[in-house]
Design a binder for these strands. Structure first.
Lengths: 214, 214, 214, 214
DNA sequence: GATGAATGAGGGTTCATTCAT
DNA sequence: CATGAATGAACCCTCATTCAT
């Protein structure tokens, strides 16, 4: 077959797969992961329900794909936006505020992410790996002092997760994202005034926005 | 008839209700809340499925009952065990370690609690109210310094939740509970060495154990 | 016990029975016979559901009681209101208009009656017996001429039933009851102008109203 | 493949739908609409219960399909059989007798039809529209004189319905259909002797019989 | 008689998954 | 590969009915 001889990846199959993932994201965001059926995803993707199974063996599989794509996209964009920052504390404060801000600006999106993570907890590792690098950087820099890496990771992710949840749930104070970042920095050993100051620094811009299309 | 002359309430209904709640706890602990059906709960309680509906209109209703009973029992026992402690920091460190310890000692139980909370997030308030009192006590005592109460609550609960989740998921370092308490105290403004020291103090005993029957 | 020594009928049992029938009427009128449960009737009657079975062996039994009481009450009141009318045609026109008027004034009531009749068609005989007497009277008087009594009964009851149904369903012309009575009289052999005139004559008053309480 | 090259529509879906409708007709005729379950219909159709829901969202939906198909078939066959008759009175008398005859010859069928109509009364309109045309034709021809079209329609349909019901219920006189038609004609203003004569005229034949297969 | 908790058959509905076309 | 009809297990929930108190 002569098919596009230039591009190695067969484009048709890949496109359908992407349609399904995108559709899943929309459906999950709209009705929550638990209330979404495969049929709805197929309809939203504009394909027959049987087609789903040519790409994903099960619902969890598509959730995993959604989680991976979402987390990867998010992490990459955030990471890129502060590539020039070298202080681990500041990097941490930026990352934390990004996630809380996501929950404030796109609550359904954030809810979907957290839903997905709940079902396949190992997927949090995609995000966690970025966080861990900054944590380890801070430790190497002597900026952070923690009793154990695991406890520190739990503190960072748990605090942010909690902050996102309250942000999604309803009204939060104006300084929610800053306060969250401040608390995290303190948990990592930065003292109060400096933590608060770092958490107030302006966020670097993100060229294409944080959330792809929507 | 001599029946308990003091308590007038017909015991039958209440007993069945209790059977159902207990059965729900067992079933939830065994297969997770999401995978548990009402029929299974009824069977586990040794009653007909229709009986369930004489007591709870829906699965969420029984989950609420489970959550309330669980959280209340737990909170009360923990609270009672450190009634004599006046330092908010120490109180906090005890409470935190209790919950992490629960996840280490009774992972299915802990998993069940977290499942239930996820479905009806408002139920976390039962536990949170105890936490909040210690937080406010610490603030009044000048022990804690936080950028916002909400952020602090998120840090406490989020960090502990994360620690419980990792404890449930698999292997954690021996000092997991201590490290978690230390990090939380640091997030609240206690400095490292003191936080670590407080988190190492022995836990007061709990007379009847933390988890009722099992 | 001295119980009312005067009244022969034990009043308690009879009162409960009546409560149940009245409650059934209310519930049936409110939600339709098919959607009404025995439990609802018991609750509406203010008794325990088990009590129902001390009075009626089954749902149909209470429906029958409802139908008999309703039809009897209605028929008796209507009959009494035109006891002084001797012309069978006029009697017929009054009866027809009463029923159509019932559907116009108390649609839920009428709907309930028709529901009940549908489930136990033999109960229509309670009402039909009154109609039949007027039909036979008219035949004896030489006012009516019909090919068969059965066909005539079907015409009278069928036409009124249809008129009631359309009345319940929605908008009908102002003269609906009159037009219905006119058509029936014509089916029985009265010529147009006289039929129309008879159907326009004023209805005799009904002292206590047609429908008991409501 | 030679498949029917003319009709492009995929035949599978339509065939299953038809199976379901036919099965519903059989089941409804056998046990009454109210006592028929969707599962029974599915079994009778030889498909899985879930398949039902690929075609009808609810029991009422299949009832509607049944009613429409039944009423349409019936009306069309009857209509066609007297296409050559121009006198509205005779047309009316034929139609009336057809329906009463249906109840006499195929009581379960007739019962099913009436059951279905009871649940979705708007479906009677399919049949009523044919009746209405003859009524209006008669009025234009000066054959009929009625106080209101609605009352006349109620008389026609109500009388026939009643006659069908008594026919289904049990014994009726030999001239039942004729007597019914006579009474209806009289309600519409035809005088007795002519009405009786018209109602006695022979019925035009119906080529394939009135009821399809059974 | 009245009570009301318990029963359990039965019905409606969903949905992940299969498979012939 | 895509299609989409069919499948059937599993679930939720209702409610007439029973029965010990």
């Amino acid at each position: 077959m002569t098919k596009s001889s230039r591009q190695a990846l067969p484009p048709k199959r890949e496109r359908t797969r992407r349609q399904l993932i995108d559709a899943a994201i929309r459906v999950f965001a709209g009705k929550g992961v638990a209330n979404s059926s495969i049929q709805e995803i197929a309809v939203a993707a504009g394909v027959a329900n049987g087609t789903f199974y040519n790409h994903f063996p099960t619902k969890e599989a598509v959730m995993e794909a959604v989680a991976v794509q979402t987390a990867r996209t998010l992490s990459e964009r955030i990471d890129e936006s502060y590539r020039h920052i070298t202080d681990a504390a500041e990097r941490m404060a930026i990352g934390n505020r990004r996630y809380v801000g996501l929950a404030l600006d796109h609550p359904e999106w954030a809810r979907m992410m957290m839903d997905v993570v709940l079902v396949s907890p190992e997927l949090i590792e995609v995000t966690a790996s970025y966080v861990r690098e900054d944590l380890q950087l801070g430790i190497r820099q002597g900026r952070f002092r923690v009793p154990s890496q695991l406890a520190a990771m739990n503190a960072i992710i748990g605090t942010c997760t909690g902050a996102m949840r309250t942000a999604i749930a309803g009204t939060v104070p104006k300084n929610h994202a800053q306060a969250t970042a401040t608390v995290v920095l303190r948990a990592l050993g930065i003292d109060f005034d400096e933590a608060a100051e770092i958490a107030r620094r302006p966020l670097p811009p993100i060229p294409g926005g944080l959330v792809p299309r929507d």
